[in-house]
Design a protein around this nucleic acid. Structure first.
Lengths: 246, 246
DNA sequence: ATTCTGTACCAATACAGGATTGGTTTGCCT
DNA sequence: AGGCAAACCAATCCTGTATTGGTACAGAAT
């Protein structure tokens, strides 16, 4: 999908859409107003809205599906019923452990297989996350960044394994726990770690990318552990600590 | 679910249900008539029908879901659907790459979480594989060994990711390619590698187990690469080389 | 004649309300 | 007290309509 950079009214619509995306007024699923609503709101034809959305979709900032709508970020991979089945049989620590196994390798492969425009897309997603104004937007852009890295690794089974974890983690109660573990200081750390990761990927250094992702996940793991211990102290063990049975 | 063997009317209902299941009159999804319909049809109370179905469910001959119905057989495995979908979108090299990511970590976790009787089971499986007399038996015992390691790692998401790879690899054409890459010398190497791996696990050395598994998989990867190059030279690229698209 | 724009149409998906189905409880009869 | 039918509840399905992105068509403007 090679889309010309927008000019004229389309460029203005694109910028206003970007403002809307940044504004934090979207729902937790990042759903944007419909094309028809946006065309009324901006006082332009629907075709201009579509062209602006074409551009944003090419930049990886929105995704669209006929009959469903237009959403900020990157979509979760369809998992069928599998993730729902597993969610009740695992816990946050196991998922984190699995992430530490899989995502550094995805980052390394991404560094090896990255295509030229994809680095810019990663940087833009990291910037969206840094500029995010509420917990929902942080979650949406952080998730989108990790998803794009996984896609750019170009290994379908590993992408699927990642997506399984992604889906499990999308459970609202799990999302809430993560949100509690974030403050300005941790967001700064995350942003720095994201940038270091993207720099390693951009330079094509697989080993550095692997290490950067591992460091980043370990930081998040420690924050999660802190939250889980706080939650456990407050109310005894909850579903986060479901025993894994094999 | 411990269900007493049925007696009296329940036993008769059970037998009639079994006849119905065997009759081939069910739809393609194996859906049985509703409990209410069966109770009318057999001229008994619904409770008898439920008891008979309880028994058949305990025997694995039917499955039930509230709001959906009662079905002959066992529910479809969500992983089967997903693996079938992924199989057409990946290739043997990607799967091998994914194994190199996931299985060393499973071996390390297994070394940390292994329970006392499990080492003996691993050794027995390795011995079975060494003694196997044909390609099918080799595949069976080798697979069982790797599966047990994955289970003993006690991480549900990683086990699921492993199982997905296992499922993809169970495709018969893929099995055949692997069989062609084996001879007495390679089986000896494999056996030695299995033993080294199990020794590391038994000793609880996570790092050594990780390295042993990685070494073993790299050996298999090289053999697979050899077979794929041979196959490619013989008939041009086949489905093993499906391009991964992201 | 070509390009632009609004409108119409199509394909994919969602949604709401009612129906259906398994799971459980209640109340009546023996 | 035990057994059974009826009632109730929770989960899922079904249907018709609405919605949404994707595309085509027709008319207006240049």
């Amino acid at each position: 999908m090679n889309v010309m950079p927008p000019s004229g009214p389309t460029a203005q619509v694109r910028d206003r859409l970007l403002d809307l995306i940044k504004s934090g007024d979207l729902g937790s699923d990042g759903k944007l107003p419909t094309e028809r609503a946006l065309s009324e709101r901006f006082g332009v034809g629907r075709r201009f809205v579509r062209q602006a959305l074409d551009a944003l979709e090419a930049e990886g900032l929105v995704w669209r599906k006929q009959g469903k709508g237009t959403f900020a970020g990157q979509p979760l991979d369809p998992m069928g019923d599998l993730a729902a089945k597993i969610t009740g049989e695992t816990n946050a620590l196991e998922v984190m452990e699995a992430r530490l196994c899989i995502e550094p390798e995805l980052a390394a492969l991404c560094a090896q297989r990255m295509q030229p425009d994809e680095v810019a897309r990663l940087r833009m997603l990291a910037q969206r996350q840094w500029e995010a104004e509420d917990a929902q937007a942080i979650e949406l852009w952080d998730g989108s960044l990790h998803r794009l890295i996984a896609q750019c690794a170009r290994n379908r089974p590993l992408l699927t394994a990642f997506s399984l974890l992604d889906k499990i983690r999308s459970n609202p109660d799990w999302v809430a726990i993560r949100a509690k573990g974030r403050d300005m200081a941790s967001l700064q750390v995350t942003h720095n770690e994201h940038l270091a990761l993207i720099d390693a990927i951009a330079a094509g250094h697989a080993h550095a990318a692997r290490t950067a992702m591992r460091d980043h996940l370990e930081t998040r793991f420690n924050a999660l552990r802190g939250e889980l211990e706080t939650a456990a102290a407050e109310q005894g063990e909850t579903f986060f600590a479901a025993t894994s049975k094999t």
